[in-house]
Amino acid sequence: MPVRRSRLNFVNLFLWVLGGSILALAAFGAFLTIQQGRLSGDQWQTLIVAGIALGSVYALLALGYTLVYGILFMINFAHGEVFMWGAFTAYFAATALNNAGMMASNPILAFVLVLATAMLVSMLVAVMLERIAYRPLRGAPRLVPLITAIGASLTLQYTARGFYGSGVRAYPDFTLFDGSIALGPVGMTVKQFVVIASAITIMVLLYLFINNTRTGRAMRAVSEDKDVAAMMGINVDRIIVTTFAIGGLLAGAAGILYTLLFNQVHFFMGFLPGIKAFTAAVLGGIGNVIGAALGGLTLGILESLGPNLLLTGYGIPAPNQLKDVIAFSVLVLVLIFRPAGFLGRKENV
């Protein structure tokens, strides 16, 4: 008896051809680039380190998407804006401390203070978002909260624009973090080191929190089954708010780390990192905490390395213009070939 599990239909064929040719082109591009020796070993290393630094910011943001998704099965489209508010807050806090001279006299305390205010404000924004925009719509058809989220995202963006103006603001420098250091053979700027180290610390703390505290266990229970969790006496509403709050804290941290790397804040800055962090969450397997971290790092490295590795070989001009195309292509490819991501559960897609 013939066993036919799935058919090779037009759509599948098209997708495989599309995905296969993108991968083949990418591989061939990488081959050409390496063969032509466009970049030196040092340059590769620099790109990879930059990618890891950027990727750890994406990872922090992706965790916010994944935590919320794990519990509510909704994409918090406005998460990028929560991040932007954190970055703006960090900017004002840093400027105030700088004017007060604290940044020069006590730089480490200043950094911690800035980090704390940014995280706090992002948390407040995230909690307000949940309370005003999402909670009333729990249980509504899927499109409804998604559209609300898009609306909330615009509202937050343009409120920031109205409050703070539409210009790009340059960050005051943490002179403490100037210069570069070497970890063994790998050299990096101090800023990159601070970003990577802070991100790793925060992620480890989060992991411990989820696995070892009562609230963390309750969060996992709610993400397994809301109704059962409620029957076990868990206050589901409170857990959901907590999840948003944690996502907000992480986004705030991501906000200041991102501005450390790029040195400027702008009301529209949340959009692209938001989408990319979502991509990272999908890449790692949405709903999965470790997956989000892995996905973030992968995407950061791909974005940093990708244009140079995959495109220069073809002699494409200004490949860095196309780095966002690479990130979006990753999203599309993952959803075609492995919608569950690295570590996700299949039924979530």
């Binding site: 994409i75 899927r142 989408i275 213009q321 196309l322 979006f328 999203l331």
Partner: peptide, 23 residues
Amino acid sequence: GDYLAIVTLGFGEIARILFLSAW
């Protein structure tokens, strides 16, 4: 639904970036 929204958003951005690119 929600995945579709984000992926199509990605396509929209890809289109814009491509039209803008030096390539």
